[in-house]
Amino acid sequence: MTGGQVVVDEPLPLGTGGRGAADAVRFLRECQSRALTVRWVPDRDALPFDTGLLHHLPPPAPRPASPGGSGASGGSGASDEAAVWRSRYAYGLFYHRRGPDFVTVMDRRDPSAAARFTLDRPAVLDAFLAVQEPTALDALDATHREAVALLADERLVLVTRGWVVALPPRLRRWPVPCTSV
């Protein structure tokens, strides 16, 4: 589906970390995968992880001004982070494509350090595919936990309070001309 819009009525539980944050990231990732526009706000102003990991996902909407307050532009660090996220967001900054026995990941979240990864080692590939769904770290065997640590070092997964979820969406609409990749 393209051209659709999703409006989330309740704040997404990113600020709590853990399973709720992993589920929220998966939701945003899947919306990105389908090129859906999402209007949402986080449950808290501060997030327990680096929001730069998420700049490829639909950013949070500005918070409405509170009565007698200054709203989202009140100068808080969290509001500044959300504004940076909104300014850096673009469709196709970070995604993966699947092949037989491998996954290729393109990461352009940081333009000065763009990277392409090929995940073809069986343990790493299996772990990446397993954490497409939010997964408790304790549910993974030692080999997959080690692979998740490698993926986390490369900023390909989000690990938060004992839960892990893959970050790059599997795009269904090509973001750039095929000759550019």
Rank of each mutant, 00 (worst) to 15 (best):
V41C: 01
V41N: 10
P42A: 10
P42C: 10
D43G: 06
D43V: 01
D45W: 02
D45M: 03
L47P: 00
L47C: 03
L47W: 14
P48Q: 11
P48H: 13
P48G: 12
F49R: 08
F49K: 10
D50R: 14
D50C: 10
T51D: 02
T51I: 14
T51Q: 12
T51W: 02
L54F: 05
L54I: 04
H55S: 11
H55T: 15
H55W: 15
H56T: 02
L57N: 07
L57P: 01
P58M: 09
P60Q: 06
P60N: 10
P62D: 04
P62M: 02
R63T: 14
P64N: 10
P64Y: 08
A65P: 00
A65V: 14
A65D: 04
A65R: 15
G68M: 05
G68K: 04
G68C: 01
G69V: 03
G69L: 11
S70F: 14
G71F: 02
G71W: 02
A72P: 03
A72W: 14
A72I: 00
S73R: 11
S73V: 03
G74Y: 04
S76L: 11
G77K: 11
A78I: 01
A78G: 09
S79M: 03
S79H: 05
D80R: 15
A82H: 12
W85K: 03
S87L: 08
R88S: 13
R88L: 11
R88A: 13
Y89T: 02
A90H: 08
A90D: 14
Y91T: 05
Y91V: 00
Y91N: 04
G92Q: 03
F94Q: 02
H96C: 14
H96G: 06
R97K: 13
R98V: 07
D101P: 09
F102C: 04
F102W: 13
T104E: 15
T104V: 15
V105G: 05
M106C: 12
M106T: 15
D107Q: 05
R108F: 12
R109F: 01
D110Y: 13
D110M: 07
D110V: 14
S112N: 10
A114S: 14
R116T: 15
R116E: 14
R116G: 07
R116V: 15
T118Y: 01
T118E: 15
L119D: 04
L119R: 03
D120K: 13
A123H: 09
A123M: 04
V124Y: 00
V124H: 04
L125V: 11
D126P: 00
F128Q: 05
L129E: 14
A130K: 08
A130D: 08
